[in-house]
Design a protein around this nucleic acid. Structure first.
Lengths: 196, 196
DNA sequence: TAATTCATTGAATATAAATTCAATGAATAT
DNA sequence: ATATTCATTGAATTTATATTCAATGAATTA
């Protein structure tokens, strides 16, 4: 690959990573192309050399998120609570060390929820929603007492909405990260596990 | 009061209530003046007869929210968990019957969080944040075993961020409300109460 | 009743942000 | 070495939305 092509690929990556951070922190509409350009230290015009529109850049991010989220169907836990624990542990460690995945989680959640985003993009984000799958896991696990009683879908809804709220707030609260005042996974797991 | 004045007051109230709903569901930037005008069944021009700008309308809503949120300092609970339970119970019953307060909660949380909103408005919303007060209550209650162990501020942060996430998702999930699939307050309280 | 106020509209204007484009020069290919 | 490509910029252009404004007629007042 020529030096030029490498350069090009690097700049694309730079734009993508800056855009991901900004979209996660400020949301789609409040993130201006100019903000991304400034963060990536280039002119606004150049942004359009790399991406044909703001919408297309956003779509590319959502597709990346959709691609990475695949949870293998055959994945099997002795204790289904570990499915949720593992997810949260991963998310919190990313939040500290490697914000990439963390921001992606926030971005995907916003993409699902926000009416302002073009439908075909929301559909991509919706297609990898954990909500239904989690409801199944909870329903199955309830029979063995792993989860508390209650409508499995409502429990799943409550759990994921909470996680979304916490992650969004963390994204704009750097002091929580710096001070190591992160939530503990058990606090959140107890939403679905209930009192022991 | 003249018929005209009454009419005027009613239209103001109509705008305010439609705007509150839209701001809560779509956020500040994605809510267009035209959206509000359509919801209130009037021309865009007329909106500006009642409110001098979108920002001022939003500010008025935030001020209303700030005025209503006052929690009397002398309020005293035998069990400090009741402070949180009472709040959640109220919020969920409003969510069903009387969305006004429910939307207001979402609006205020968004106003605190969103960088896109003018600072002087965010400051108003921030001034009535429950976060610090709750942390105090939790800290005090931990000594009597009402709450789980852990950093009181992080617990408060986790609790309120979760509630915010749940309420935002409910605001755009009418089917959860219709089907009566609401979260139970205990599920959320267990974030701070912990395993018994 | 006549004069005045003011709610209301649709059309004009202003503003901010997205998008396009022509010009430049450095890297690459021939 | 010359020609070609293409990354880059800043300046137009377009588009979406907020905001202003002149005109109208209905309600209110004198």
């Amino acid at each position: 690959m020529s030096a030029r092509d490498e350069q090009k690929e690097q700049r694309r990556q730079l734009i993508i990573s800056k855009a991901l951070e900004l979209f996660a922190k400020k949301g789609y509409s409040d993130t201006k192309i100019g903000d991304i350009a400034k963060a990536a230290d280039m002119s606004v015009g150049l942004m359009f050399h790399y991406f044909e529109s703001k919408e297309q850049l956003y779509e590319e991010l959502v597709k990346m998120g959709a691609g990475g989220t695949k949870v293998p169907q055959e994945m099997n836990f002795e204790n289904p609570l570990d499915f949720f624990k593992g997810f949260l542990d991963a998310l919190f460690s990313y939040a500290k060390e490697q914000p990439w995945v963390f921001y992606m989680f926030v971005l995907m959640s916003q993409a699902r929820r926000n009416e302002g985003i073009p439908q075909h993009i929301r559909d991509i984000a919706l297609s990898v929603s954990q909500m239904e799958q989690s409801a199944e896991i909870i329903k199955a696990g309830q029979q063995y007492g792993y989860f508390r009683e209650g409508d499995p879908y409502a429990l799943s809804f409550t759990f994921w909405s909470s996680v979304q709220g916490i992650m969004e707030q963390l994204a704009v609260s750097p002091e929580m990260l710096e001070n190591g005042q992160l939530p503990e996974t058990d606090w959140i797991i107890d939403i679905i596990r209930g009192a022991k």
